[in-house]
Structures are given as C-alpha cells and as structure tokens.
C-alpha cells in the first residue's frame, strides 16, 4: 500500500472507460442535444415581440442561471418521480431511473445557457436576411428553419462546442445520485482499493486531456470557419 500504485489504475481502465466514460459521454451528448433544442426554442421565445412569451423565457433562463446545478440535480431527482406520477395519473410517484432523471435535469439546466448562445446567434443574422425571407412569402417558422437558424448555428458553432465541454465536466456531478459516470467509477475503485490519490489524479488527468484537446479542436475549427467566410 505504499507509493503510487499504477497497477490499480491500469487494471481498472476497462471498467473506468467502458462503463464510466461511456456513461459520461452518453449523458454529455444527449444533454447537449436536448439543451440545444430547448435552448433554441427559449431563444426564439426571448426574442419574441410578445411580452408574455419573452417574459416567461427570460424568467426561466434567469432562474436556472441563478441556482447552483447541484441543487437542481437534487431537486429533480426527488421531484421528477412525483411529476411523472402526476402526469401519468398514477396517484403515486413513479421511479424514472437515475439516468433519465439526470438527463432531464441537464437538459433543463443547460438549456438556459444554450438559450443565451442561440439568442446571440439569432441576433448575429442581419435583419436584412429576415426581411428578404419575409418578402419571399416565408412564414416565421419557415424563415427560422431555412434562413435564420442555419446561419445562427454556423456562427455559434465554436461557442456551442465550448459549452458542450462545460456540460462534459458538469456531468461529473451526477455522482451525488450514485450514478456510475467516469468520476463515480473511479471513486468506486478508489474506495475498494484504498487508492484515492492514484484514482483522483488519474481522473483529473483524463478530464484535463479530453477537455483541453477538445477546446484546441474548437479553436482550429474557429480559425477554419473564419477563413471560409
């Protein structure tokens, strides 16, 4: 039990990655996709000329951004079974499983951040484009679908990917729900073998390498896109 035990790390790598990292990546990708869709709808609502619609979206975004993520994770974990039970008219809470609960939480929480990115993206499309689309007879949804959102997504791709890296790191918080994400898996091994230092150093290195590499890739992409324009 002395010194830095590399064998613990090496022997647990299949478990850490096949189970832990697979879970983390699945949650990251699904959360990001869901949050971009919801965030885009929220952004369209925020930019609506209808005060009630923009007010509701604005209130939601401000609420989510004012609360700590860990609190919302707890909240939804205990609340979602009741909500689902109520919707299903079951008269009792229905267990939805840790993964589903975590996914719903992340989509709802991160949507607030993606909303702000997409709002900036929609506003980055010149108003003349909107005028041209309307002048051709497109309606609001056609205009958004074919003219505004494609350009907004393209302009905001670097920011969306950067936020996805944040989601990737945030997902480690699901370990409070005893879900076996990458950090959770490492924690299991650390507790079992009493090798806390080794495992947490390794986890930190993996998160750093993956996040840093991803952010460098975003930078490269950003430069390529700047050239293309």
């Amino acid at each position: 039990m002395n010194g830095f035990d590399l064998d613990t790390i090496i022997s647990s790598i299949p478990y850490l990655f096949m189970q832990g990292m697979a879970f983390t990546l699945k949650l990251t990708v699904l959360s990001t996709l869901g949050a971009i869709i919801l965030g885009t709808l929220l952004a369209m609502m925020r930019l609506s000329s209808n005060r009630l619609v923009s007010g509701v979206a604005g209130g939601y975004v401000n609420l989510m951004r004012a609360l700590p993520l860990i609190l919302i994770i707890f909240w939804f974990y205990f609340l979602v079974p009741y909500i689902v039970g109520w919707i299903a008219q079951a008269g009792r809470p229905i267990a939805v499983g840790g993964f589903t609960s975590a996914l719903i939480t992340f989509v709802l929480f991160e949507a607030a951040y993606f909303c702000e990115i997409m709002r900036a993206g929609i506003q980055s499309v010149p108003s003349g484009q909107t005028a041209a689309g309307y002048a051709l007879g497109l309606n609001y949804w056609q205009l958004m679908r074919h003219i505004v959102l494609p350009q907004a997504f393209r302009n905001m791709t670097p920011l969306l990917l950067t936020q996805m890296i944040v989601v990737f790191q945030d997902t480690s918080l699901v370990y409070v729900l005893s879900l076996t994400d990458f950090l959770g898996a490492a924690n299991n091994v650390a507790q079992r073998d009493g090798r806390l230092v080794e495992m947490f150093v390794f986890v930190a290195m993996v998160y750093f390498v993956m996040s840093y590499a991803a952010s460098r890739l975003v930078k490269v992409l950003e430069r390529r896109m700047a050239v293309a324009q």
Binding site: A131, Y134, G137
Partner: peptide, 21 residues
Amino acid sequence: NLPKLRSRIGMVFQHFELFPH
C-alpha cells in the same frame, strides 16, 4: 394573409440579401 400577399410581390434590396448559406 401576409406571406401569401408578399409572395406575389417581388422585392429587391439595396444590399442584395441573398442567403449566404
């Protein structure tokens, strides 16, 4: 029905406003 009405009138803008994508 504004979309329908607009589709019957062509408009050309100072800054072209072609869809760049």
